[in-house]
Design a protein around this nucleic acid. Structure first.
Lengths: 344, 344
DNA sequence: CTGAAAGCGCTTACAG
DNA sequence: CTGAAAGCGCTTACAG
């Protein structure tokens, strides 16, 4: 039974103290702790006993500094820890990092460039060997300068002027094919629910949307394009406005998970109020979500694998770290998306 | 435009190199970098210019070591990064840590005691000031020894024999009240879908379930109790077995999010197959989930706030760190749950 | 205002 | 096999 009331003073013991207690030199203690090569078994026993008695834990930072070894850490900065998409992204990074004996240090930027800047500075200061970033915005200054020789990989989004290794989704192609499902199904009044234009993926998905429309000689109807929703509640309200239009859309392209959920919640509310305005629209959702097949309207999902995105970002980083880290031009990987009709 | 092809050699510059380039002593460089007190402006300019030229970044590990300062890091170990519940938990920890000027280092144990052990050792070795852990199992050995003087807080689950600060949910009360909703609604054949008995929360929620039944002079029917599902697919199959019973349950208590989703997916599959066996059961879900109100059966949610769980864990830790860290007995906090009927 | 010396905790390289 | 010396990158404390 361990308790936190044993009255010991707060202090992490050092090799010196271990050595003193064992009656050996710090070097003998250090050698024993490192694995015990070239130390008499008898002395090893005494050292290990002292380690136990003092609760000694080697200071990894000090060790790596003297040994000239890298930190063994990879920094990962994501925009929203509470979003399972980025959680799985981080899992993918961790998976590959583990195979290289590295641990990840994870930070959350909360879509705030200021926080991103501070986080990166801190991670670099703590000697991460490389940095994987889902960038918050389009500001490049803090990414161009101050990273020193620490390799940077951008994931999911790019930043203009920052020409480093990147892995993104096939946003344009995915949005195009998702929209085509609606067009091929006969829909012509198709609305777009997306997030702010400043976000890389938002712009790309809108581009895929318009490309599909163009093939049917259509251009987006401004009254059907809503591009400012960052969360579920604003998405729900945007959806409500669309459904209240005299000439309401027959289908909705939702450019991300948050917009999909908001749109569906509004549909649900109207069903429960027995007030489905006009007929209920079909939905395309860029991003998968759980229980898609339980929805009262047909949902087409533009699916992709966040974990693979993380894996690929890590692979790019470790390739960089393995070779001459400035050799070769930056590589740009685009991962595919899959169309899945949740409820035909 | 920054590229990774500029041919520089890989090497983080040091104060010494900055000082040499600026033509001053390392101390003058150090003082300037630290903020510039007691350094002639002219020298400061030269140092800062050298910093820019070399892309110098202070080694935070080295600085803190010499200065005798703590690392400024709090270790957080969760069981599943891909679960938004724990992502939000980590956000809560981060929120409080930020107000104390600390950063979190997040690790994932993947419900694996071996990984938990290694992760903790590593975090301690990297000098975290404290550790917040969602423990994987019931093994206590690595938690009793080897943490040294680093305070530990257990969150969501406890470990027998490890008597440290803890914050858990009111699992028993929440499960009790959720089950009461079903009983008060007239249900008498109520099934239990939960996870393995070895998990703390699983046991507690089952206890709340049986307590509610007892008030109606009922005992759990063994054929209606399924307690081995760790993921959605196994939960779905367990649900299928229940619905296929000759005397199928009229209501299901789902002890966690994964079991709820699995149960609902099976219900959805049967509706789509126009084969709702007998009537569809009511659902109680311990853990909230998105779009609960869109389900084709009544869903009662035993809701709680993972972020607040994280905040509270961090508060316990910082209280410990602020005072004499071994003063006072361990504190045990239990956070409330709220009953929410998603669709009456 | 400036810098040479010493040391944070650890280990490499060198001498026994 | 063992240890005194030196140094990783940085800063405190001490002398000018």
């Amino acid at each position: 039974m361990v308790t936190q009331t044993d009255g010991e003073t707060s202090h992490q013991p050092t090799v010196k103290e271990v050595a003193a207690l064992a009656g050996v030199s710090p070097m003998t203690a250090s050698r024993t702790i490192a694995g015990g090569t070239n130390v008499r078994p008898e002395l090893q026993d005494r050292v290990l006993e002292a380690v136990r008695a003092l609760g000694y834990r080697r200071n990894e930072n000090a060790r790596r500094m003297r040994a000239g070894e890298p930190s063994g850490l990879v920094g990962v900065a994501i925009t929203n820890l509470g979003n399972p998409y980025y959680g799985n992204f981080a899992l993918g990074v961790e998976e590959i990092a583990a195979t290289h004996g590295r641990r990840i240090v994870l930070g959350n930027t909360a879509e705030d460039t200021q926080r991103e800047r501070r986080l990166i500075a801190d991670l670099i200061g703590r000697q991460v060997e490389g940095l994987i970033l889902v960038p918050t915005g389009q500001e490049a200054a803090h990414l161009q300068h101050g990273l020193g020789d620490t390799p940077l990989v951008l994931a999911s989004r790019t930043v203009p002027g920052v020409d480093v290794d990147t892995v993104v989704l096939d946003d344009v192609g995915g949005a195009y094919r998702g929209t085509r499902v609606l067009l091929d199904g006969g829909h012509r009044r198709i609305a777009f629910l997306g997030n702010v234009t400043s976000v890389f993926t938002g712009r790309r998905r809108y581009a895929g949307f318009t490309r599909a429309l163009a093939e049917f000689d259509l251009v987006p109807d401004a009254t059907l394009v809503k591009r400012d929703q960052q969360d579920v509640e604003t998405a729900r309200r945007a959806m409500s406005d669309l459904l209240d239009l005299a000439d309401a859309p027959t289908a909705i392209f939702c450019a991300n998970n948050r917009n999909t959920i908001g749109a569906l919640k509004e549909i649900g509310a109207r069903i429960r109020a027995s007030n489905p305005a006009s007929g209920l629209p079909a939905i395309v959702s860029f991003d998968d979500f759980e229980l898609a097949e339980m929805m009262p309207v047909p949902v087409t999902v533009v699916d992709h694998d966040p974990r693979e995105l993380g894996r690929e970002a890590a692979r790019l980083l470790f390739t960089r770290l393995a070779g001459d880290r400035f050799a070769g031009p930056p590589r740009h990987v685009e991962l595919p998306t899959r169309i899945r009709v949740a409820r035909p």
